[in-house]
Computed example of a mutant assay.
Amino acid sequence: MKIILTQEVTGLGAPGDIVEVKDGYGRNYLLPQGFAIAWTKGAEKQITSIKRARDAREIRDLGQATEVKAQLEGLAVKLQARAGTGGRLFGSITPGDVQQAVRTAGGPELDKRRIELPGHIKSVGAYQVQVRLHPEVTANFALNVVAAK
């Protein structure tokens, strides 16, 4: 089955890519979840608009990705969250929360879909967060989750 990805799917491709997948995977998962649309000749206009939007927010080249990596790895990111006794959080930390904390700490603007958390963060402490900046560049930085006063 030929489909057009509308969102980034790990191991498959980026938005706007035309990929060939097994029929069941496309019909039962990718299409209903909104990760892809069926490929048709008329969908070419949609592909160009998706790629234009991706190019506007994507890191341009390898050099820019390494610069952003250097900024991130030298950054001390502290995130305050509501916590109960024993350091257990009310809820959990999301990639959007991490994106906001990086911006508050003076870091670069990140796409929250490219932030990979080390599992569910549900307690205070120090964590290593990974960001996929470019297909060849991945940045790691320390995230310190503290209880809000």
Rank of each mutant, 00 (worst) to 15 (best):
A147H: 04
Y29F: 15
G34A: 12
L62S: 05
I3R: 09
T66R: 15
I93R: 08
L62C: 02
L110E: 07
Q99D: 03
I4D: 01
V124S: 02
G106C: 03
L12K: 13
L89S: 10
H120W: 03
Q100E: 06
L79N: 00
A53S: 08
A65I: 03
R60K: 13
L75H: 02
T10R: 15
Y127A: 03
V124I: 13
T85I: 11
V102E: 01
Q64N: 04
R54C: 05
D55M: 11
G125E: 01
K2N: 07
E44R: 14
R113L: 06
E73R: 04
Q100M: 03
A56N: 15
P32H: 11
G34I: 09
I93V: 15
A14S: 11
L75C: 06
R114A: 12
R52S: 07
K45M: 03
I18N: 09
I50K: 06
Q80C: 06
P135H: 02
H120E: 06
E73V: 01
L79T: 05
L5F: 10
V137E: 00
G42S: 14
D97L: 03
L133I: 10
P32V: 09
V9T: 00
K122W: 01
K78A: 06
N28K: 13
Q80Y: 14
P118Q: 05
S49H: 12
N28E: 13
V19Q: 15
S123N: 01
